[in-house]
Simulated scan of single mutants.
Amino acid sequence: MAKPQEKVSFGQRLKQIGMVFSFTAKQDRWFVPLAIVAVLVPLALAVLAALVWGWQWFPIGILVALLALLVVLNLRSNRAMMNAAEGQPGAAASLLENMRGDWRVTPAVSATTQMDMVHLVVGRPGVILLGEGNPQRVRSLLGQEKRRLAKVIGTAPLYDYVVGQGEDELPIRKLRTTLVRLPGRLKGPEVNALDKRLKALSARPQMPKGAIPKNMRPPKGAFRQMRGR
């Protein structure tokens, strides 16, 4: 059962907005000029309207200016966050974990020591694999995961993407819209059942690769004794 969300006070909300404002201003050189324009234009129109039709228009101008500022902040902050996340390991999984909707994200179901990784996403469209890192190594990991998952997903659709800026790669700023536009072919119970099967598959212990350490090898003659029983 999900825990109820804690209520955020007005002061905390203002502090969060201030942090987003500061972050966006550092990342986006156009944010401050656009924010100034978004505030000054409604205020100027409100003053003009107040001089012509009465001062009751001035409070309306203030509200419109605040609304315009929040719209600019929302648009430019999203752009700034996408630019900051570009090329960061695990950015795609972090982005999807905070995305609205029924998305079951398992970060780094497969990875290498060079920080190449594949994330598993289960949702209404089906099963989605997202690769981040070196394209050649990531495509190899994606191939391995597709073969592994094909045994348990049945007829559920399977999509795979390499997140990056190269040819045939998906830019991280387009990740949300790309997944949202995928056709929803599974219903809620089907998503739950598929998610459980995939979690059970990931929970199975795997034999370590390579030679068995000497301290874990059975004593000589053990296999002959077992066959002779």
Rank of each mutant, 00 (worst) to 15 (best):
L96W: 07
V41M: 12
V37A: 15
A35R: 00
Q56L: 09
R76W: 04
L51M: 15
N74G: 10
A44K: 06
L66K: 05
Q27C: 11
N98F: 10
L63P: 00
V39S: 05
L48R: 14
F31Q: 01
A84Y: 12
W57I: 00
I60D: 05
G90A: 06
L45F: 14
L67E: 07
R100V: 03
V121G: 02
R104F: 14
L120I: 05
H119D: 09
R79V: 05
N74S: 12
A92K: 05
M82A: 14
N78G: 13
V52I: 15
L70M: 14
L43S: 02
A46E: 04
P33S: 04
N98P: 00
L43T: 01
A92V: 00
M115I: 08
V47Q: 06
V64A: 13
G61A: 03
N98C: 06
W55E: 12
L45Y: 11
A46S: 12
A85G: 04
G123I: 06
P89K: 04
G90Q: 00
N74R: 07
W30Q: 10
G101K: 03
G101N: 03
G54M: 02
W103S: 02
G87K: 05
L75P: 00
L120H: 12
A92D: 01
V32H: 08
A93C: 03
L75S: 14
L66W: 13
W30N: 11
P107W: 03
L43G: 02
Q88Y: 11
W103F: 07
F31T: 01
L43H: 02
